[in-house]
Design a protein around this nucleic acid. Structure first.
Lengths: 128, 128, 128, 128
DNA sequence: GTGGTCTAGACCACC
DNA sequence: GTGGTCTAGACCACC
């Protein structure tokens, strides 16, 4: 697991995004234990408070559960993966539409372009 | 004009992207003179060779023309803005589709989601 | 506004409790601006991060809203005061019942005692 | 046995309260010898005069008896535990009612809430 | 060993 | 001026 020290996004949000991606990819599953705050901090070369911020934020969203003295675990709710998938898709769509609108395209043009291109890529087998 | 010193993308490509965005936004127009390589290098705190690489690349794409002793100018072709727009839209679409496919959505689901969301945002007036 | 540096309760929770009490007492109202994080930190002689923790926690509960560069404000929702009242009453009841059960009283005995005593105090006018 | 050095309550009253709770919990029984004033003072890191004050106060209430040269003992009266229980329950009730009245609830509402909640907790088996 | 709280202080973005 | 992020390091509770 890696973070980019880019200027754009706070580290703790990048950590959350990493964990969500790992969940969506199935590398992390409901019930799994996350690395301890101190271990992950050392591994990622960030302060343990930054990891804690990320973990606490995820706890607030119901993504993880923390058992004092035991560690932090992915919530034992099989729905979370689906929920994250939906959330990530929505973010992706909104980011995309913002880009397209800023280029001056209308809804109709966008839908048209996406339809054509998605069909083409799917036929080529680029959709796994 | 600024660049992010992130690891992802070579600086000269970021410079090109910036200039293209400036063109699309109308902040830069066909025929306009670009800053001298040395001036821009100083302003952006990058090596002047990096600027030269960016300008050369854009020259290869027919985006700019360099007149010896005069400087570098946006090509006097009213079509370039439209061409960049198309190119940027295509990049945007492909990036977006790659994200959506990696989340496991099908072409139909993607088109469906985009259609609904684009309509909604347009109604809200978020498309300028 | 004061905090007790007692060992029992984290400072940031004490701060939240203080603000909730101020709301219930009507000393603070929906829409009111809270002191800036730095000012309150200085006044309470705690670190500004501790105030931020309290404010962020309240933001998560929808109690306050933060406008970057403007400050932190009590949510413009007239229902919050009622909600806090209910929450404080529930906490009060649960704390009380835990005490009474630990003394070995049954539900019936507790209800009986409370009924008699509440009536007596109300008649004496101790309920404002 | 520990005391909180909080500002609220004199230490000698906290000591009395601790001893009463120990009696109610059955950790201390009628006839039991209390630690010597000096021993307890050392253990609790308070002045031995503070312990003396606590013991004297309890003697005045008939809770303990001091036998010169022998030490201080819980009164050999099987009723004291019951009496303390009643006294603690009364204090608990009054503190609780004060809280609820200050939140603006009426006697009826308080009794109603307590009845519902006590029943629920008892059913859940939280009353030991 | 694991998480929780707190401090002092730095630097940043936005206004 | 206001909040946001982050670090380094301390001490604590619970196990």
């Amino acid at each position: 697991m890696q973070v980019n020290f880019d200027i754009e996004k706070p580290i703790y949000l990048q950590i959350i995004a990493e964990i969500q991606r790992a969940l969506v990819r199935g590398e992390l599953n409901p019930g799994d234990k996350l690395p301890s705050q101190r271990d992950l901090a050392q591994e990622m070369k960030v302060n343990h408070n930054t990891i804690q911020r990320a973990y606490r934020e995820m706890e607030g969203e119901g993504l993880v559960e923390t058992l004092r003295g035991m560690g932090t675990f992915i919530t034992q709710n099989p729905e979370i993966v689906k929920q994250i998938r939906v959330q990530m898709a929505e973010e992706s769509i909104d980011r995309f539409l913002a880009e397209m609108f800023s280029l001056g395209l209308t809804s109709e043009q966008i839908v048209q372009s996406v339809t054509v291109r998605a069909k083409k890529l799917e036929d080529r087998g680029e959709a796994q």
